[in-house]
Design a binder for these strands. Structure first.
Lengths: 197, 197
DNA sequence: CCTACCGATCGGTAGG
DNA sequence: CCTACCGATCGGTAGG
């Protein structure tokens, strides 16, 4: 029905990226197991077997989504931290960067897939992801340590970091772009809740 | 292979409950779409078509899991709140009750299914769940309001409640029963992070 | 990247 | 609750 499509060259360089993007949305909405290759193919106007020209298996598509999601959020949050400033300024910039990736139109499907579908990966792929995740969380642990040294926070333990990750990542479940609150306001409110006045 | 099974009467009253319990574990581990009726049947030593003697559809099994999970946690947390005490005592009892349900051997599969698989429900069932969830969260909102009145917390807004829910529910992702920390310690640490000293 | 297809599996059912 | 089964769908592939 949705006919009339640009006749894309089979090897147009960003077809693979289009598949990853479509897969991220579908995995986020319907889950990995609930999404079919045919769903993904249709979303990028391919025939049902064609995604396998770009990916060997469905699992490889999931891995691509999850690694891109992790890389993007690491780049954003790491970049924010690298700008420097007081521990409080760094922390607040990291909160904002993390939330922007998590909640933005473009990044949220990657984030949701990362948070909810990673357990469908096979052991080797999962190990690769966990390695990156640990590195990411180490950045936060360092930020908490600096806050503690500066007297801005009472406890910088691992559990505190996990509570923080929970508060942050849970926003995916309730944030609505037109909900009246901006991402910036949400970040500020979380900062206010955690840091001393 | 796992032969020699007690010859259960077909209508033994708790066969249905056994199915719900097995389904909760499988849905939590493999996802709703990734779990087959045959998986569930095998887990309770039935033939592949037999679960349909107890449930009309697979969706009905999911609904049963999710509603039981919601009811259990509501009962536990509501019961803790009903014991009364200072706002702080009530809040801490609620934290502990919520976490005990979420992390206990018996309840965590129900909780994980509730948190991660509810979106597979059809609209009508989802609406029913959301109604119960709203009632549950209203209990927490009230607890926060009382804390604010008592001067134990600076902000009792909706977003604060959502950060709290995130910190609580995220524990499902990282808690390990033999991780050295008891549920009680985790509850105490969250309380310390949120309330004024 | 499409066509045409395969073997396996899935949710569900009739009839006992 | 079991037996036997159905139609539909799925991930993946050969051959172009």
């Amino acid at each position: 029905m949705a006919a009339s499509r640009r006749p894309l060259a089979p090897d147009e360089p960003n077809r693979r990226a289009e598949i990853v993007r479509a897969a991220s949305r579908l995995f986020a909405e319907k889950g990995y197991a609930g999404t079919t290759i045919r769903d993904i193919a249709k979303a990028v106007d391919m025939q049902s077997g064609s995604p396998f020209y770009h990916f060997k298996t469905k699992h490889d598509m999931l891995l691509a989504v999850v690694l891109e999601g992790m890389a993007t959020i690491t780049r954003a949050t790491g970049g924010a931290a690298a700008k420097g400033g007081t521990p409080r300024e760094v922390f607040e910039a990291m909160l904002l960067a993390h939330l922007e990736q998590l909640l933005a139109e473009d990044g949220r499907h990657f984030a949701a897939t990362l948070l909810h579908e990673s357990h469908h990966l096979e052991a080797a792929a999962l190990a690769e992801l966990i390695e990156q995740k640990d590195a990411y969380e180490a950045m936060w642990q360092k930020a908490l340590r600096d806050l503690k040294r500066a007297g801005e926070i009472a406890d910088d333990s691992r559990v505190t970091r996990l509570f923080l990750m929970g508060a942050l990542n849970w926003t995916v479940q309730w944030y609505h772009p037109n909900g009246g609150r901006t991402v910036k306001q949400i970040a500020a409110q979380l900062s206010a809740m955690l840091l001393k006045p």
